[in-house]
Amino acid sequence: MSARARPHQAPAPTAGLALTLVICTVGPGSLAADLEFGRYLAAECMTCHRSATATSTIPNIFGLGRQHVAAVLMAYRDKTLPNAVMQNIAGRLSDEEIASLALYFSITMKP
C-alpha cells in the first residue's frame, strides 16, 4: 500500500480505516525522520546521484541542509519543480519518508 500518511488527518471511525491506521502506526510512515529508514530509501537515490559532480546534470544531494532537501523533494512531489524523472520518484513519497531522506542526506557525505 502506498501509505502517504498526513500527520493532521483525523482517523475515521470505520473498521476498515481503523485497519489502515493500525498499519500506518506500526509501519515506517509514522516514524518521523527515521535515519535508518532514510538510509534504506536513499539507496534508490544512489543509482543516479552517487557519482554526481559539480558539472553533471544529476546534482550532488549529499551534505545538504535538511530543510533544503525536504523542500526540493516536496516541490518535485507537488510538480512545482520541473523534471519528470524526479517528479516520478518523489511522487510516492510521504511526508515522513521525505523527512527521513532529508535527515539522512543532511548528515551523509558522498561515498
Binding site: 544512489m46 543509482t47 543516479c48 546521484h49 552517487r50 557519482s51 554526481a52 553533471s56 546534470t57 544529476i58
Partner: peptide, 17 residues
C-alpha cells in the same frame, strides 16, 4: 539533449553502485 546528459550521468552513477 538534457535527457541524454542525464542518461550519461545515470550510467556513471549506476556502474559505481
Amino acid at each position: 539533449k538534457r535527457n541524454y546528459a542525464a542518461s550519461v550521468d545515470w550510467y556513471t552513477g549506476i556502474v559505481v553502485d
